[in-house]
């Protein structure tokens, strides 16, 4: 677990810009790197992450694909097998289900089934999460599903810094890596320190230390957890906020260390509760830190319905700062 770093010589950029800089850096650094996806070239990407890259790098390396996730993810698997370093963009996790066979049956199995003769250094980026009022088919959080699959590394950059530097580590990984970019983060602005040039893709990060309760989260819920910690602090409750950063393999050690200190834990996961990554985290805590617990575990997850279109209903479905505060307060100061 590493601590957040601050530096006065920082530049302020958006998460979207950080993603783009990461792609540019990768394209410049390694000629084997190329991008593939729907509307990433002429249109600039559905979240405008790749805007301008076609002009700079050309059609050979910034490839618009047909609307067939299975085909272009499969092409990515093949390119990776052949020695390229493809970065495939799937518009959102909702559409990735069409490519699930390529990911689950090909990308993660080929290195094993070939006895290690093939590596699959494939990176897939996709947007995830709700909050943009784009209704059920565009608002899911299925990263927890992908974290179920051995052979994948699942990254959930929640900060500008991680958006900027996780890609480098992902490309260096000989196995397939999926990067989940939460849709509500693209416009987030933050300082990026000039002396950070890389981040690890293995460990969780403590964003805020605390002694009373651990708020364990990732991705789009991190900022909500941090706001919740502020609100709790005003109440005299010191919450520790952990950003998992990597959903697979989980940094269990960081989770256990935090919970062993605070003895209380709220897991915030925008996925649905049943069979979620939050369930896995809770179970690991119970398996390995049972005797440290001084309160039941609590979860703040999305309501178990297709995410509604109407703004007030969507807000009611997703984890919110107030629900996190309430869950944490109930553990520390039951009424």
């Amino acid at each position: 677990m590493s601590a957040p770093q601050t530096n006065p010589t920082a530049t302020r950029i958006t998460y979207r810009e950080a993603c783009k800089q990461a792609l540019r850096e990768a394209l410049l650094a390694d000629s084997r790197v190329f991008l593939m996806g729907e509307d990433i070239g002429r249109y600039g990407g559905c979240y405008a992450v790749t805007k301008g890259l076609l002009k700079e790098f050309g059609e050979e390396r910034i490839r618009d694909t047909p609307l067939s996730e299975s085909a272009f993810v499969g092409a990515g698997v093949g390119a990776a097998m052949a020695g390229m370093r493809p970065i495939v963009e799937i518009m959102t996790v909702n559409f990735s289900l069409l490519a699930l066979d390529q990911i689950l049956n090909n990308a993660v199995t080929i290195p094993h089934m070939s006895g290690g003769q093939f590596a699959i250094p494939l990176v897939i980026r996709m947007a995830t999460g709700g909050g943009r009022r784009v209704a059920a088919q565009h608002s899911r959080s299925l990263e927890g599903w992908y974290a179920h699959i051995p052979g994948l590394r699942i990254l959930t950059p929640a900060t500008v810094e991680d958006a900027r530097f996780m890609l480098k580590g992902a490309l260096a990984d000989p196995n397939p890596v999926i990067i989940f970019e939460h849709v509500m983060l693209y416009n987030m602005e933050s300082d990026l320190s000039s002396d950070v040039t890389e981040v690890d893709i293995a460990r969780a990060m403590t964003h805020r230390p605390g002694r009373d309760v651990s708020l364990i989260t990732y991705g789009g819920s991190l900022s909500k957890a941090l706001q919740a910690a502020d609100a709790l602090a005003a109440d005299g409750i010191e919450a520790e906020v952990i950003d998992l950063r990597v959903l697979r393999p989980l940094d269990t050690k960081a989770i256990l260390e935090s919970v062993s200190k605070t003895r209380r834990c709220v897991i915030i996961d925008e996925g649905w509760r049943s069979g979620s990554i939050s369930a896995e985290i809770g179970m690991r805590i119970v398996e390995e830190a049972f005797f440290e617990l001084d309160a039941p575990l609590r979860r703040v997850c999305s309501r178990e319905v297709p995410i509604p279109y109407a703004a007030h209903l969507e807000d009611a479905c997703l984890p919110q700062t107030a629900t996190i505060v309430a869950a944490a307060r109930e553990l520390v100061r039951p009424t």
Partner: peptide, 12 residues
């Protein structure tokens, strides 16, 4: 009988 609720940490 009539179990007390005791957290694991408290019991230890």
């Amino acid at each position: 009988v009539g179990r007390l609720k005791v957290t694991p940490a408290a019991r230890r």
